[in-house]
Amino acid sequence: MLQLVADGLIVGSVVSLGAVGLTLTYSLLRFANFGHGELLTWGAYLTLAFLGLLLAGAEMAPIGPFSFGWPLLAALMLALPATAAIALAVDWALFRRLARHGNAITLVIASFGAALALRNLVQFIWGTLPEYYTREIQIAIRLVPRDVLGGLRITPDQLLVLALTAAVVVLLHLFLSYSTLGRAMRATAMNPALARLAGADVAKVARATWVIGAALACIAGVFAGLTGQIRPMMGFDLLLPLFAAAILGGIGNVWGAVIGGLIVGLAESFTVPLLGAEYRAAGSFAVLIAILLIRPTGLFGARA
């Protein structure tokens, strides 16, 4: 029982960070970006590429109980702006041009195309075989004995992922609540025309949204790679859970996306012993449907 909760929260952490980026871009740019999952993949692979450059063939010395060392964190710092640059480039080359003439459906279909192109580019550059940041074997720590609710074992990396996700979400909340740019993002999401009248440069706010959404996707991709494998399909596989989380929480609501991500993670985790691992996605969608039937706007979505 406890183990299922922990496993669900770890998966949910990755989904939450991805869903926050998705919900932010949706609320500001008013379309569902099906290419968002690929930003997770690119974030994970760019971090891998920078790690390779930084290590230059040397072994990575782990930090304390973790499986990775400082070079991975340095690589992540380099991958964050690189992933944001990809998001901005796709926006510049595709979405911004189409938004002038097309409608939301055009943008959604274009995002499918962008996703395919980005995924195939990953396969072309890095191949299709799974990659890892580190080959270190981690021994899970027993936090709760087996006779208490089935016990709980967790690796230091997994604990770190949970802690860092919480820290990132709190930082994002502070940013959106107290910074001028964060407030301008919330204001633009609510009413772009009024935001312009209040003095916000809406184009600049949109660029900032891409950067923040891509940075969160990059972190989520690295967390997914750290607690599992780095694969070209990792972002695509996470896409439906990301949408489920964003919709479940109420599209456009940051805290909703976080809670939605954790619920999706928990639903997937509890589905495994009940129905089998092949039905884990079905579990999260059953929860999504049940919640939407009761509350069509999602858990924290504003009523029309």
């Binding site: 407030r183 204001a187 609510m190 003095g199």
Partner: peptide, 18 residues
């Protein structure tokens, strides 16, 4: 003509900052 998702204070402070 107001940002309904922001508090009264946030509405004013945002315009002032911008």
């Amino acid at each position: 003509n107001v940002f309904a998702n922001l508090t009264v204070r946030e509405n004013l402070e945002l315009a002032a900052s911008l």
